[in-house]
Amino acid sequence: MASDPHLREELLARTELLKGHFLHVVRDTVRLPDGAEATREFVLHPGAVMVIALLDDGQVVLERQYRHPMQSVMIEFPAGKLDHGEASLSCAQRELLEETGYQAREWAWAGRLAPTIAYSDELIDIWFARGLRLGERRLDTGEFLDVITATPQQLQAWCRTGEVIDCKTLVGALWLQNVLRGEWDLDWQDTASASAAG
């Protein structure tokens, strides 16, 4: 792919605007391709994972969780933020167990998405999990969510009707659809092998 110098911006300076418990917001001063200067405000993010967990009966594991900025309960795939220095797979395994109680025998890395490219550098790794075994959830303090299951067809219908509007879950539904159709391949590994590789 070309280096695209006619599109790229050069970082000149960075100012920290907010460093909270979760959000870290900065303002960059940049030089535009035509030589003019501009500012870009955005959120720095440590990265996250999303898990598409497949049950033996063909259903997928989903969550219903209240999201304060939206003032609404959202249907989502299990997901969570990377801890400092945490590997992507370790985070996926931790989040799936903590939020749903499930552990998986096999894992496959599917891809990566950038959900909010205009105002955050967040990247979300997409993981598939199968061979699920249900145990006890370990929700964080102050975390409240319902674990639900749905067929891929139900999920597709919810995406179409607007019951699912969460960006990462919409992308996950696309991945799921193409994997189930055999159009997109996954490289499945057992938990021990996947942990060593991830």
Rank of each mutant, 00 (worst) to 15 (best):
D4Y: 12
R8Y: 03
A13I: 03
R14D: 02
E16G: 07
K19H: 13
R27S: 02
T29M: 10
L32V: 02
L32R: 15
P33M: 01
D34T: 05
D34R: 09
G35Q: 06
G35T: 06
G35A: 04
E37T: 14
E37A: 02
E41I: 14
L44I: 09
H45F: 08
H45N: 12
P46E: 10
V49K: 00
V49W: 00
A53Y: 03
L55V: 04
V61I: 13
L62S: 13
E63N: 11
E63K: 12
R64M: 11
Q65G: 03
Q65E: 15
P69K: 11
Q71L: 10
S72W: 05
E76F: 02
K81S: 11
K81W: 14
D83W: 15
E86V: 08
S88H: 01
A92Q: 11
Q93W: 09
R94Q: 11
L97S: 13
G101A: 08
A104F: 02
A110P: 01
L113Q: 05
A118C: 08
E122C: 04
D125I: 00
D125P: 00
I126G: 00
F128K: 01
R130C: 13
G131D: 05
L134H: 12
L134Q: 12
D140F: 15
G142K: 15
E143G: 06
E143C: 08
I148P: 06
T151I: 01
T151V: 00
T151A: 00
P152R: 03
Q153T: 08
Q153L: 05
R160K: 15
R160G: 03
T161F: 09
G162C: 01
E163Y: 08
C167Q: 12
A173V: 11
W175K: 07
N178G: 12
V179L: 10
R181L: 05
R181I: 01
D185H: 06
L186R: 01
D187T: 10
W188K: 09
W188N: 07
W188E: 02
A192F: 03
A192S: 11
S195E: 10
S195N: 09
A196Q: 14
A196V: 12
G198Q: 06
G198P: 13
G198S: 12
